[in-house]
Write a protein that binds this DNA or RNA. Sequence first.
DNA 1: GCCAACGTTGGC
DNA 2: GCCAACGTTGGC
Length: 134
Amino acid sequence: MKYWLIKSEPDVYSWSDFVNEGGTVWSGVRNYQARNNLRVMAKGDKALFYHSNIGKEIVGIAEITREAYPDPTSDSEQWVCVEVKPLAPLPTPVTLESIKSEPRLANIGLLKQSRLSVVAVTKAEFDRIQKMGS
DNA sequence: GCCAACGTTGGC
DNA sequence: GCCAACGTTGGC
């Protein structure tokens, strides 16, 4: 199983929107690196759900429910989307600040490639954040 | 609102 | 193929 972190601006699409809908199509990604990440996602992979700009914290855990297929919001064949559903909220959201101050998370993709909206995390990083958020 | 980081575009 | 200009993201 692989682990990911996906970003959303909560004033556009928040964790509570996600929970209310029971899942969503993760479309609109127009960055090659993020696209490549979407392509290698497998059903059952888990993803940390991060609120960018507002909140700047990881608020929950999502699961990939459908693997990459052509993004219906794009005319081009090159872009893909996946489908995800909410798995569980983090009882205590893990803030960017607390991630930065945790030495074991110093190499997390969120910090290393801060502009990438779909980024891989290691199992250790995933477990660490889940623990910090419990 | 500003700006750093970084990706993309287009002229040469 | 290089690089300057420009656009976007996201933290502050």
